[in-house]
Amino acid sequence: MNAQTEKAKPAKENSTSDNEELLAQLEKQVSVAVWIQFIGQIMEAFYLSKIMLVSEEIREDANERQILLGAWIQTAGQFLEGVGTTKQLYTDEETLTLEAQRITNLGDWLQSVGVTLEANAGTQIIIEEKKKEVQEEFIP
Protein backbone atom coordinates (compact mmCIF):
# COMPACT_ATOMS: atom_id res chain seq x y z
CA MET A 1 0.00 0.00 0.00
CA ASN A 2 2.89 2.35 0.66
CA ALA A 3 4.23 1.83 -2.86
CA GLN A 4 0.85 2.74 -4.33
CA THR A 5 0.68 5.96 -2.34
CA GLU A 6 4.17 6.97 -3.46
CA LYS A 7 3.31 6.22 -7.10
CA ALA A 8 0.14 8.31 -6.84
CA LYS A 9 2.01 11.40 -5.62
CA PRO A 10 4.17 11.87 -8.75
CA ALA A 11 1.14 11.27 -10.95
CA LYS A 12 -0.79 13.92 -9.05
CA GLU A 13 2.13 16.36 -9.30
CA ASN A 14 2.31 15.74 -13.06
CA SER A 15 -1.42 16.28 -13.34
CA THR A 16 -1.15 19.58 -11.46
CA SER A 17 1.76 20.64 -13.64
CA ASP A 18 -0.15 19.69 -16.77
CA ASN A 19 -3.17 21.69 -15.58
CA GLU A 20 -1.01 24.73 -14.83
CA GLU A 21 0.54 24.54 -18.29
CA LEU A 22 -2.90 24.18 -19.87
CA LEU A 23 -4.22 27.14 -17.88
CA ALA A 24 -1.23 29.27 -18.91
CA GLN A 25 -1.78 28.36 -22.56
CA LEU A 26 -5.50 29.11 -22.36
CA GLU A 27 -4.82 32.47 -20.69
CA LYS A 28 -2.47 33.37 -23.54
CA GLN A 29 -5.16 32.43 -26.04
CA VAL A 30 -7.67 34.62 -24.20
CA SER A 31 -5.23 37.52 -24.44
CA VAL A 32 -4.83 36.96 -28.18
CA ALA A 33 -8.60 36.81 -28.58
CA VAL A 34 -8.98 40.13 -26.72
CA TRP A 35 -6.48 41.77 -29.09
CA ILE A 36 -8.33 40.31 -32.10
CA GLN A 37 -11.53 41.85 -30.72
CA PHE A 38 -9.69 45.17 -30.40
CA ILE A 39 -8.69 45.01 -34.07
CA GLY A 40 -12.30 44.38 -35.04
CA GLN A 41 -13.54 47.14 -32.76
CA ILE A 42 -11.09 49.73 -34.08
CA MET A 43 -12.05 48.78 -37.64
CA GLU A 44 -15.74 49.29 -36.79
CA ALA A 45 -15.10 52.71 -35.25
CA PHE A 46 -12.84 53.72 -38.13
CA TYR A 47 -15.37 52.78 -40.82
CA LEU A 48 -18.25 54.38 -38.92
CA SER A 49 -16.14 57.54 -38.81
CA LYS A 50 -15.60 57.37 -42.57
CA ILE A 51 -19.35 56.92 -43.14
CA MET A 52 -19.94 59.97 -40.97
CA LEU A 53 -17.49 61.99 -43.07
CA VAL A 54 -19.10 60.94 -46.35
CA SER A 55 -22.76 61.34 -45.43
CA GLU A 56 -23.98 64.73 -44.33
CA GLU A 57 -27.39 63.25 -43.46
CA ILE A 58 -25.81 60.79 -41.05
CA ARG A 59 -23.41 63.41 -39.70
CA GLU A 60 -26.32 65.70 -38.78
CA ASP A 61 -28.23 62.95 -36.93
CA ALA A 62 -27.57 63.14 -33.18
CA ASN A 63 -28.31 59.44 -32.76
CA GLU A 64 -25.79 58.49 -35.44
CA ARG A 65 -23.19 60.67 -33.72
CA GLN A 66 -23.98 58.93 -30.44
CA ILE A 67 -23.47 55.55 -32.10
CA LEU A 68 -20.07 56.68 -33.33
CA LEU A 69 -19.13 57.99 -29.88
CA GLY A 70 -20.19 54.69 -28.36
CA ALA A 71 -18.04 52.78 -30.85
CA TRP A 72 -14.97 54.86 -30.02
CA ILE A 73 -15.55 54.47 -26.27
CA GLN A 74 -15.82 50.71 -26.78
CA THR A 75 -12.58 50.80 -28.74
CA ALA A 76 -10.79 52.54 -25.87
CA GLY A 77 -12.25 50.00 -23.45
CA GLN A 78 -11.22 47.09 -25.64
CA PHE A 79 -7.68 48.49 -25.80
CA LEU A 80 -7.48 48.76 -22.00
CA GLU A 81 -8.81 45.23 -21.65
CA GLY A 82 -6.09 44.03 -24.01
CA VAL A 83 -3.39 45.86 -22.06
CA GLY A 84 -4.65 44.58 -18.72
CA THR A 85 -5.06 41.01 -19.88
CA THR A 86 -1.58 40.97 -21.38
CA LYS A 87 -0.03 42.50 -18.24
CA GLN A 88 -1.67 39.79 -16.14
CA LEU A 89 0.05 37.14 -18.24
CA TYR A 90 3.54 38.50 -17.80
CA THR A 91 3.67 39.20 -14.09
CA ASP A 92 3.78 37.06 -10.99
CA GLU A 93 3.91 39.98 -8.58
CA GLU A 94 0.62 40.32 -6.75
CA THR A 95 0.48 44.15 -6.78
CA LEU A 96 1.16 44.24 -10.54
CA THR A 97 -1.45 41.54 -11.16
CA LEU A 98 -4.00 43.55 -9.19
CA GLU A 99 -3.16 46.70 -11.15
CA ALA A 100 -3.54 44.76 -14.41
CA GLN A 101 -6.92 43.47 -13.25
CA ARG A 102 -7.98 47.05 -12.49
CA ILE A 103 -6.98 48.10 -16.02
CA THR A 104 -8.90 45.17 -17.49
CA ASN A 105 -11.94 46.00 -15.38
CA LEU A 106 -11.83 49.67 -16.39
CA GLY A 107 -11.76 48.53 -20.01
CA ASP A 108 -14.82 46.37 -19.40
CA TRP A 109 -16.66 49.33 -17.88
CA LEU A 110 -15.77 51.60 -20.79
CA GLN A 111 -17.01 48.99 -23.22
CA SER A 112 -20.27 48.80 -21.26
CA VAL A 113 -20.72 52.56 -21.48
CA GLY A 114 -20.04 52.48 -25.23
CA VAL A 115 -22.50 49.64 -25.79
CA THR A 116 -25.12 51.48 -23.73
CA LEU A 117 -24.69 54.65 -25.81
CA GLU A 118 -24.98 52.67 -29.05
CA ALA A 119 -27.99 50.69 -27.86
CA ASN A 120 -29.77 53.84 -26.68
CA ALA A 121 -29.15 55.62 -29.98
CA GLY A 122 -30.24 52.56 -31.94
CA THR A 123 -33.46 52.40 -29.93
CA GLN A 124 -34.12 56.09 -30.63
CA ILE A 125 -33.59 55.51 -34.36
CA ILE A 126 -36.09 52.63 -34.30
CA ILE A 127 -38.66 54.74 -32.41
CA GLU A 128 -38.27 57.57 -34.93
CA GLU A 129 -38.67 55.17 -37.86
CA LYS A 130 -41.83 53.67 -36.34
CA LYS A 131 -43.26 57.18 -35.85
CA LYS A 132 -42.60 57.91 -39.54
CA GLU A 133 -44.37 54.69 -40.55
CA VAL A 134 -47.43 55.56 -38.47
CA GLN A 135 -47.55 59.09 -39.91
CA GLU A 136 -47.26 57.76 -43.48
CA GLU A 137 -50.02 55.20 -42.88
CA PHE A 138 -52.41 57.78 -41.47
CA ILE A 139 -53.34 59.91 -44.41
CA PRO A 140 -56.66 61.75 -43.81
Results as ranks from 00 to 15, higher is better:
E64N: 06
T86L: 09
A62F: 04
F38N: 03
T86M: 07
L106V: 13
V34Y: 10
N63S: 04
E99Y: 09
A100W: 05
M52I: 06
N105R: 08
E27Y: 09
E129D: 08
A24Q: 13
E94C: 00
Q29M: 10
L89C: 03
Q66S: 06
I127F: 04
V34L: 10
L117Q: 04
G122E: 07
Q74T: 02
T116Q: 04
G82I: 02
F38P: 01
G122F: 01
L26S: 11
Q88W: 03
I127H: 03
L69V: 04
Q88N: 11
I67S: 06
A76Y: 01
E128M: 01
D18W: 10
V83E: 08
S49N: 14
Q37M: 10
D61L: 00
Q78H: 03
A24N: 14
I42P: 04
Q124K: 05
I103L: 08
G107Q: 01
K28C: 04
S112G: 15
A121Y: 02
M43G: 11
G82H: 04
D18M: 11
S49E: 15
E94P: 00
E118D: 08
M43R: 08
T75I: 02
E94W: 01
L69I: 03
T104A: 07
N120G: 01
K28P: 01
E99V: 09
G82K: 06
F46V: 11
M52T: 08
I42S: 11
E93D: 14
Q25D: 14
T97D: 11
Y47R: 09
L98W: 05
D61E: 03
A33M: 13
L110A: 00
N63R: 02
E128P: 00
E21N: 15
Q66G: 02
Y90C: 06
I51T: 11
T86Y: 12
L96D: 15
S112W: 09
V115Q: 11
V115I: 13
S17I: 09
R65N: 15
E129Q: 12
S31Q: 10
V30C: 06
Q37E: 14
L106C: 04
W72M: 01
Q74Y: 00
L89I: 06
I73K: 00
D61K: 00
W35R: 12
K28V: 03
I103S: 02
S49L: 10
Q111H: 03
Q124L: 04
F46Y: 15
L96Q: 15
E44G: 03
E99N: 07
S55F: 08
L96N: 11
I58F: 11
V34W: 08
R102P: 00
A119E: 03
L26F: 09
I103W: 04
L80W: 05
K87G: 05
E81Q: 13
F79E: 05
S55W: 04
G114T: 00
E64W: 14
R65G: 12
Q25L: 13
D18T: 13
Q29R: 13
I42L: 13
E81P: 00
E64M: 15
